[in-house]
Amino acid sequence: MQRTAVAGKREKGDTHITLSTRCGANEIVITSPVLDLFGPQIRTAVEQTLQQLQISGVLILVEDNQALDCVTQARLRCAVQRLQRGVEA
């Protein structure tokens, strides 16, 4: 059964992360008003954290609103924790 967790907000300077379990490899989908300027950094930040936490089998939707990389990573960490704790989205 698919589980989902969210963290963060869609406000300026923040990012809203939605994690859902799935079969197969991780997939990262990013939307952002600054995708052309910071897209690669956002992706790298997400990948680094997933690797650190050794997470696999998730779909990560990143709805960025100009968050710094460490904010993205903190929100992702929170979403992972919530997913693992079984906190309802």
């Binding site: 710094l68 460490c70 903190a74 929100r75 960490r77 929170c78 924790q81």
Partner: peptide
């Protein structure tokens, strides 16, 4: 509370 704590932890050094 959990969200804020993790954010602070991530942002404080920067």
């Amino acid at each position: 509370k959990d969200e804020a704590r993790l954010l602070l932890e991530g942002l404080l050094p920067l």
